[in-house]
Design a protein around this nucleic acid. Structure first.
Length: 486
RNA sequence: GGCCCCGUCGUCUAGCGGCCUAGGACUCUGGCUUCUCAAGCCAGCUACGAGGGUUCGAAUCCCUUCGGGGCUGCCA
């Protein structure tokens, strides 16, 4: 399988009709990992043959997403390479040439059927329980018929002729797969306006770009015979065909193919919420693949080192947000402080909690160790540090009752008088003063003693550790917030 | 409908004929710890879709069946 390892060339070729989603990225990750693992080349190509649906914005965004995840490509947009251009929209003349050649060879033919006619015939075929594919009406037109169509100003598409027989290929993940050609109708290579279809462009480019391994979604499995048909027409020897590996789907929790309807699919969504790229890659690597032992915590580099297509599962996987969160939280806990700070700051600034001044950054820096094991995404940093900035705070609704009842007031008064004389405002002194006054003095359980203080100062009954929080907040604001509730 | 792919705990998976009274992780439940929330630690629940074969022996091989999914486009 790893024949001519050094020559392995794998491509990731999305059609950017929207933001890259979880399924796309899992494919990209496997493509990348396979290339890296074999010491081969990772090619990034844009399949924008459908210009009505693809936009420049999404093309740009796709590249950015790959870079953010750390999936760098060796050839493709931005970096170039010997087989470019890597945008199919810039290779139109190439497809035209091949289509013309197929025409000349008799492998393809002009088809004058209109959409409406095709539609009608498809319906009829369905009704009479025949396969709905192209019926071959234009396969063998006479000169007279052609002249007649021309006279009607019909402009033909170019359609590939599927010969009788069958196509068999070996899929790295599924084994030998065979399609009888009676179920693979003649297919369109080029629209009347001269623009190519995926079926033509993908095959031509894979051959021209010397792609050796095609790892892609399972949905393309049944289009493989068409692709192989194009290789044949191009004169590629069977031994030179790329090797196929059709990856299992990543499905939504509702057991349907992952889509906008059943989940958060766009990678941009995860990025905005503060999921770490290495966590996303780690989680996605485990969807359809496993290293074989009980290892689940892998870095991008380790994925590349360990990845093996033969270990890819053939059955679909459901996306599990809970597990992604668990992995993300674990990675966050292991972040070094400087790294954690650098990654958190954009979220805190974006939320308007701080402007980013050095003194503010310093406070966040000191707060991060307190919250590191309490968050699952970077986005949660915002809510955790918010109380450290600004003067007053708003007590959240479901905590309000816990500071307004009589006993709570008493606790707050006691805390107030215990803290007021504290000179050395640090964690130890604060804890000492509060324990002495509330636990020893009032005889309260710690939980009952500290909760009102916590709420008064942070606004919530859930917060970072209390004494450290008060130390960070400063004496002045701590006392002010307590007294505001008296 | 036809063609193709797939089927181990709720989820992701290990397993590639005996090491499996099926292992790990996430989730969930209970407990410990504790200033809240987390984190951490301990314990527990739950799976080979079904039916036939093959074999001394099957989660592992074969067949059937049921279930799920994809494709069936001048989308990719």
């Amino acid at each position: 399988m790893e024949k001519n390892a050094a020559g392995v060339r794998v491509r990731f070729a999305p059609s950017p009709t929207g933001d890259l989603h979880v399924g796309n990225i899992r494919t990209a990750l496997f493509d990348w990992a396979y290339a890296k693992h074999t010491g081969g080349t990772f090619v990034f190509r844009i399949e924008d043959t459908d210009r009505e649906r693809v936009t420049d914005h999404y093309i740009e965004a796709a590249g950015e997403t790959l870079k953010w995840l750390g999936l760098d490509w060796d050839e493709g947009p931005g970096v170039g390479g010997p087989y470019g251009p890597y945008l199919q929209s810039q290779r139109l003349d190439i497809y035209q040439e091949w289509a013309d050649r197929f025409l000349a060879q008799g492998d393809a033919y002009h088809c004058y059927c209109s959409n409406e006619e095709l539609e009608a015939r498809r319906e009829k075929a369905k009704e009479s329980n025949r396969p709905p594919g192209y019926d071959g009406a234009c396969r063998n037109l006479t000169e007279d018929q052609i002249a007649s169509f021309r006279a009607q100003h019909r402009t033909p598409v170019i359609r590939m002729r599927m010969p009788d027989g069958k196509t068999t290929f070996t899929d790295l993940i599924r084994g030998e797969v065979t399609f009888e050609h009676e179920f693979v109708p003649d297919f369109v290579l080029m629209r009347a306006d001269g623009s190519p279809l995926y079926t033509l462009a993908v095959a031509v480019d894979d051959v021209l770009m010397r792609i050796t391994h095609i790892l892609r979604g399972e949905d393309l499995l049944s289009s493989t015979p068409r692709q192989i048909r194009v290789y044949q027409a191009m004169g590629v020897k069977e031994s030179d065909y790329p090797v196929f590996a059709h990856l299992p789907f990543v499905m939504g929790s509702d057991n349907a193919k992952l889509s906008k309807r059943n989940g958060e699919v766009s990678i941009a969504w995860y990025r905005e919420r503060g999921f770490l790229p290495e966590a996303i890659c780690n989680y996605l690597a485990l969807l359809g693949w496993s290293p074989g032992d009980d290892r689940e915590d892998v870095s991008l580099q380790e994925i590349a080192d360990l990845f093996d297509v033969s270990r890819v599962n053939s059955s679909p996987a459901r996306f599990d947000m809970k597990k992604l969160e668990a992995i993300n939280g674990e990675k966050i806990r292991r972040l070094a402080l400087d790294d954690f700070l650098a990654r958190s700051l954009p979220f805190v600034i974006e939320a308007g909690v701080i402007t980013g001044s050095p003194s503010e950054v310093e406070v966040v820096r000191k707060a991060l160790p307190l919250i590191q094991e309490r968050i699952v995404t970077l986005g949660e940093v915002v809510a955790m540090v918010r109380f450290l900035f600004g003067e007053g705070i708003e007590v959240e609704a479901d905590s309000l009752s816990k500071v307004s009842e009589p006993q709570a007031k008493e606790v707050l008064r006691s805390a107030m008088s215990a803290l007021t004389p504290v000179v050395k405002w640090d964690e130890q002194s604060i804890e000492g003063a509060l324990r002495e006054s509330l636990i020893d003095g009032m005889g309260l359980k710690p939980r009952l003693a500290f909760t009102p203080v916590r709420i008064a100062v942070t606004g919530s009954h859930i917060s970072p550790p209390l004494f450290e929080s008060l130390a960070l907040l400063g004496k002045e604001r701590t006392l002010a917030r307590i007294s505001a509730l008296l």
